[in-house]
Design a binder for these strands. Sequence first.
DNA 1: GAAATAGTGTCTGTAAGACATTATAGG
DNA 2: CCTATAATGTCTTACAGACACTATTTC
Lengths: 219, 219
Amino acid sequence: MESQIIVTVDVVLLTLSEGALKTVLLRRDNEPYAGQPALPGGYIHPGEDRDALAAAGRVLRQKTGLVSPYLEQLFTFSGGVRDPRGWSVSVAYYALVHESLLGPGPRHHFELAPVDALPDLPFDHNRIAAQAAQRLRDKSGYSALPCHLLPPAFTLRELQQTYELVLGSSLDKSVFRRRLGELDFLEAVPDAVRQGKHRPAQLYRLKPQARLALFNKTM
Amino acid sequence: MESQIIVTVDVVLLTLSEGALKTVLLRRDNEPYAGQPALPGGYIHPGEDRDALAAAGRVLRQKTGLVSPYLEQLFTFSGGVRDPRGWSVSVAYYALVHESLLGPGPRHHFELAPVDALPDLPFDHNRIAAQAAQRLRDKSGYSALPCHLLPPAFTLRELQQTYELVLGSSLDKSVFRRRLGELDFLEAVPDAVRQGKHRPAQLYRLKPQARLALFNKTM
DNA sequence: GAAATAGTGTCTGTAAGACATTATAGG
DNA sequence: CCTATAATGTCTTACAGACACTATTTC
């Protein structure tokens, strides 16, 4: 029969924690692989979900309690062998949040694992997570994407450190700030500074519409 | 019920013809929208298709007779309103071919329409085609993608003209060739030149493995 | 005022862009 | 030998990268 295809969404929820890129894993409630840690995922509910993006948002909300961070379609994984229940399609998304959104203290329903050293996950979740990390790293090379790994307001130093962690290389402060100035997707938060042990730093936030500013490409 | 979801693939088959980017449209055999021009598409066959990519290749082969040109996943479109039959998921792909692959003379089963002036298409096929064209144009800015719009062997001038058509801007010959030299994804075809009215030009082809060379990005 | 971080300025080498020159074919 | 295209070379300027310097806070 044509339409006995399993249709799900999976979400790779990424954050920076302890200086590394990590992803949220949940212990599965249901078979298959019940009890094992896996990416948050679930069936699309045709009666409830407007589209797959909405389904991903709902799954994330129901399973982790988080509401609509940055959420973007990653890739669609499919085939006859990736799910023991049968031929399946999973529309995968990736989300970026600041660690503080995950709540303080010990995790309740979920755990964080470094994307570069994940345990063996069910289905093709290792592939999905690896591809999400790759996408984030690629896109961070030419866009403002890493901003979404920070809280709503942040200092330029924090932003630079975020880029450095994601890209895995160090950047020159002066060059970095020149770029930001040219692109004009940040605005200073009026009268807001971060206090530290020394000179306070101006806080910045993303400009309202500029959710994904792009840098210059060549050719 | 959860799983009464329609699962299809659609293919945006792009080519350069008469100096413009065009896409292949087919008259639909079946309802809904039977008889109307639309993107090549069809159900996934779980018993037959290894995954959605294979399904896209099969659909393309069965409906246009073309075998495996450049074929890449574009985006997955989904929702309750895009298909009158019900909640649906379409995994969309885009393919690039040289016009000569489409066969000479008047088209038999299909027609070519400019992506920038498409008629009203069924489903959300206008959105899908627009997104495919956008992806090609974006990626052409920093990759070797436009090579796949040419025949297997081509001159540097033809390659430059292809880039110019896709990008919609003119490029400097000297700069263009410097870039190609740095990236090293082309090789000269030995003893092969294109004869014209004047000095013959060396023919080039993609190096075996280098299907998608990337240019430099910043940050 | 010492130390540390924030923020800006200056210099230099490299490479992009614009243009010129040489090379090779046909008429 | 003229013209058209192929292919390569030269020059100038803009900018990336490296580094220095100034500013502002705490202790």
